Amino acid sequence: MWLETLCWPTSQLTHEDTEYKLPYLRRALAVSDTEVRVFASPWSAPAWMKSNGALNGMGHLLPEYYQTWANYFIRFLEEYDKEGISMWGVTAQNEPIDGDIPEFAFNCMGWTAESQTEWIKTNLGPTLRASRFNATKVMILDDQRFLLPAWADVVLADPEAAAYVDGVAVHWYGDPFFPADALTATHNHHPDKFLLNTEACEGSYPWEIQKVALGSWHRAENYAADIIRDLNHWVTGWIDWNIALDMNGGPNWVSNFVDSPIIVDDELQRFYKQPMFYAMGHFARFVPPGSTVLDAGVEQGDLLSVVAETPDGFTVTTLLNTGDIELEVSLTDPERGHLNLTLPARSLTTAKWM
């Protein structure tokens, strides 16, 4: 499991950290019987460090503050560590191209692949490695897959920057419009760097009037299909953006309401586990951390599948039927023989064997 934090403190942790983030992180660590890997992703440096003097809109980190911003990373890691939360990793920037969009509402900060390369190799990388947090994973990009493999090729072509980079983070919002082949190309160019999907949610597109769709199996299918495609193209993990939202898909300070695997009805004091929740849980249950994805998945018509070997020696095949009619499939294992399955219409199925 990964959990993402999205806000950076200045001289001390903020109200949002102490009242909202840290209590939930501690609960997650307490209730999980498996390792919880927490990573942090910055959305903006303080306005006084930026070219536009604002937290949002078109603005970049001023070069004279490159080292100051790297020092902020260390301070953040120190403060969270004091609270008992160790960060597994950090991304260099959340969606770096957002800082090149005029009047962009969210907190953001623009980077090019070239400027990110320079900052990582000169400031963030050396500062992090010289600290006691030198095992913290560093991820580049943290943006849409259409920027790949070009973004990774630029950063990782510099051997000094590449030495500090562990992986490439991607978001899912452009996935319906850009093929997953870009992920495989990135892996082929840089096989020593992992790929991690670090953000996804339904209901995010401007044309989606219904932000929260209680009980939507279609949205669960979208999750499952994207997870399968990602796993079949070298992505090592898949993370939802939201732990839980209210009935409107918030709260959100810029009214960017979206859907979530868990929806809370505060008025009735109840919560709903969406089909998206169970779709994610299906993969978490049958393809646990440490599994190895095999080159046997298919994407043919309404059928998508992924095959993996688990750490305890099982083989699992997860199959998604997005069609309105059932499908007959046959699984073949050279050592175990054949297994014939009927996949119900609009279903997610996993077969598991030793």
Rank of each mutant, 00 (worst) to 15 (best):
E103Q: 15
P159M: 05
Q93K: 00
E118L: 14
G167K: 07
T122C: 10
A161G: 01
H189T: 10
Y72P: 00
K211H: 10
Q93G: 11
F104T: 02
Y164M: 08
A152L: 11
V154I: 15
V155Q: 06
F106D: 07
P176S: 02
P96W: 08
D175N: 12
V168Y: 09
A169F: 03
L148D: 00
D166P: 04
G125N: 01
Y164C: 03
G110C: 08
P149N: 04
H190W: 09
N123G: 01
T136D: 00
P159T: 12
G174Y: 05
A105G: 14
L77P: 05
D192Q: 15
V170Q: 04
V155A: 04
P96M: 14
Y80F: 14
T136G: 05
E208L: 14
W119K: 06
D175P: 11
W88P: 01
P191G: 06
A185D: 07
G203T: 05
E95T: 10
D181A: 13
K137F: 02
G110V: 09
F178N: 15
A162G: 01
N107W: 11
A157N: 13
D166M: 07
G89S: 08
E199A: 06
Q116T: 09
V165W: 09
P96A: 02
T186I: 07
L128S: 01
H190D: 00
A92Y: 08
E118S: 09
R132A: 13
